[in-house]
Design a protein around this nucleic acid. Structure first.
Length: 486
RNA sequence: GGCCCCAUCGUCUAGCGGUCCAGGACAUUUGGUUCUCAUCCAAAAAAUCAAGGGUUCGAAUCCCUUUGGGGUCACCA
């Protein structure tokens, strides 16, 4: 297999987007399995949307997910620079070439002028599009305006009457009529190139062999193909991935979904879970596997298993993956690993007593879905609780429950605080007094934790500690008295 | 609206002319284990393969039409 070079070309306009990560793993896989390179190029030609910290967020997000790259980004490489804003003179040089070969021309129409033109077109029931007013302008007039320093753009002279087609790696044969394509702006009024110009020049210069990008680019591809032709360059292979969607099927958006990679980290997801989840969006494992890591994905990914339909971003399955990977992690690396991740992610205070942690972790690791669940799952171990009378009395009447609390407290006071002893005491009590197990246990659970869903009762009591358990039972008795009085 | 892309259970998908009255996973429901929750284990329900026409001995799989959805039509990427 010939080596493939692929790339992602994110724009630093905001957050690190989950879609970028999704694109990245496919590009990474296709390149790596051929022994080629995967690179990151920063497309920062839109100064109006530029966000300074956005770029480092992208690296941080990809790094967290374990997505590595070979060139570009902060690494640099043989085709540097990898920031488009550092490549301006390159674009100008090639734009000049297009001007000379007749594939491009200067356009002095102002934005307002074009806006008015489109408005008029729409009013006349026509399609709004550039009317080519400077396409065949008098060279002398153009030169005069140039000499005067008039603001201008450079446009591509899209040939008429052409059919432009390519064999898409995912979609097969796709074709467009050139007559429907506007004379694209190549160099903007501010001297920056547009995406179309820059992407073609950079992909060629950086020897990208396979362009794997979102379906939203499919209608731009003929423009790019025209540019390759204009430059006399061999175009890369194109593959247009489906678009990840919101629940309403529209293109995934910030408004309707959490699309920030880092926010999944902050919510307590494991990177391996996120990777596994997104890998199965629009793609399926050749052996039908549901569980695999990035290394395996890179080995087996192929474009022919990419679906043409845009998958809906539904994180239900991500939750399942996360719980699964959390449990797997504990089985393989032990509870301390879970503790480490909790601390590293800031889900538990760094000064949280270690021995307490060691006692709590075995009780909750099967119950935790996200690392951020930890607090909610365990707060009663160290926080004061106020059991609700309603819950205490859920399955038994006042008299019964009060008696149960008193007598249980009495017995527990006398025993050494060991798991076996606690269990033995309570079970014996339950039997000799003929309490209903479900009622009695649940009542105690509420009295001791304030909750109806907790880890097993005896272990929980043991970890909470004798003094605290007795105090809570006492507290429960008091609450019932108050409830009785009102 | 023009152009382009797409269409299998609620969701992610398997399927690339017969082995599919459509398989798996998540979610859901039920049962088992159990002091609750969760885990784990079983099982169920869930898609007239968008609809209608063809082609074929035979179609979820090929073709056409319709419908539906999406993308794109900027001096944004």
């Amino acid at each position: 297999m010939t080596k493939k070079r692929t790339r992602i070309a994110p724009s630093p306009t905001g957050i690190a987007h989950i879609g970028t990560a999704w694109q990245a793993i496919f590009n990474l896989g296709i390149a790596r399995q051929s022994g080629g390179q995967f690179l990151i190029r920063i497309e920062d030609t839109d100064r109006s949307r530029f966000v300074p910290e956005a770029e480092s967020l992208i690296y941080e997000g990809l790094k967290w997910l374990g997505i590595d790259y070979d060139e570009g980004g902060i690494k640099g490489g043989p085709f540097a620079p990898y920031h488009q804003s550092d490549r301006l003179d390159i674009y100008h040089k090639y734009a000049q070439q297009l001007l000379e070969s007749g594939w491009a021309y200067y356009c002095f129409a102002t934005k307002q002028e074009l806006e008015q033109m489109r408005k008029d077109q729409v009013a006349r029931g026509e399609l709004p599009r550039y009317d080519g007013r400077w396409r065949d302008a008098d060279p002398a007039e153009v030169q005069k305006r140039l000499d005067e320093g008039q603001p201008h753009v450079i446009r591509l002279k899209v040939p008429h009457g052409r059919t432009i087609s390519w064999e898409d790696q995912i979609r097969g044969h796709v074709e467009f009529q050139s007559d429907l394509i506007d004379d694209q702006v190549l160099i903007k009024g501010d001297g920056f190139p547009t995406y179309h110009l820059a992407v073609v020049i950079d992909d060629h210069l950086m020897e990208i062999s396979d362009v794997l990008r979102g379906e939203e680019w499919i209608s731009s591809t003929p423009k790019h193909l025209l540019l390759y032709e204009a430059f006399g360059w061999e175009p890369p292979r194109f593959a247009h991935m489906p678009l990840i969607r919101n629940r309403d099927k529209s293109k995934i958006s910030k408004r309707k979904n959490d699309v920030s990679i880092l926010s999944y980290r902050d919510k307590g997801y494991l990177p391996e879970a996120v990777i596994n989840f997104i890998a199965l969006l629009g793609w399926s494992h050749p052996e039908g596997k549901e569980i695999f890591d990035l290394d395996e994905f890179i080995k087996v990914v192929s474009l022919d298993r990419v679906q043409k339909t845009g998958p809906i971003f539904d994180t239900d399955k991500l939750d399942w993956y996360n719980g699964y990977y959390l449990r797997k992690m504990v089985e393989e690396k032990g509870l301390p690993e879970l503790g480490k991740r909790l601390v590293a992610g800031g889900f538990v205070a760094p000064d949280f007593p270690l021995e307490k942690m060691e006692q709590i972790l075995p009780l909750i690791y099967e119950r935790i879905v996200k690392l951020s669940d930890f607090a909610e799952l365990t707060d009663f171990f160290w926080k004061d609780i106020v059991p609700e009378a309603r819950l205490l009395l859920k399955k038994g009447d006042l008299e019964l429950v009060q008696g149960q609390l008193q007598i249980t407290k009495g017995f527990l006071e006398t025993i050494p605080w060991e798991l076996a002893k606690i269990e033995d005491t309570i079970r014996t009590l339950c039997e000799t007094k003929s309490y209903k197990k479900s009622q009695y246990f649940m009542m105690l659970r509420v009295a001791v934790t304030g909750k109806t869903a907790t880890p097993p009762l005896f272990e929980t009591m043991q970890v909470i500690g004798k003094d605290q358990v007795l105090a809570r039972l006492e507290h429960a008795i008091k609450i019932l008295k108050e409830a009785d009085a009102t």
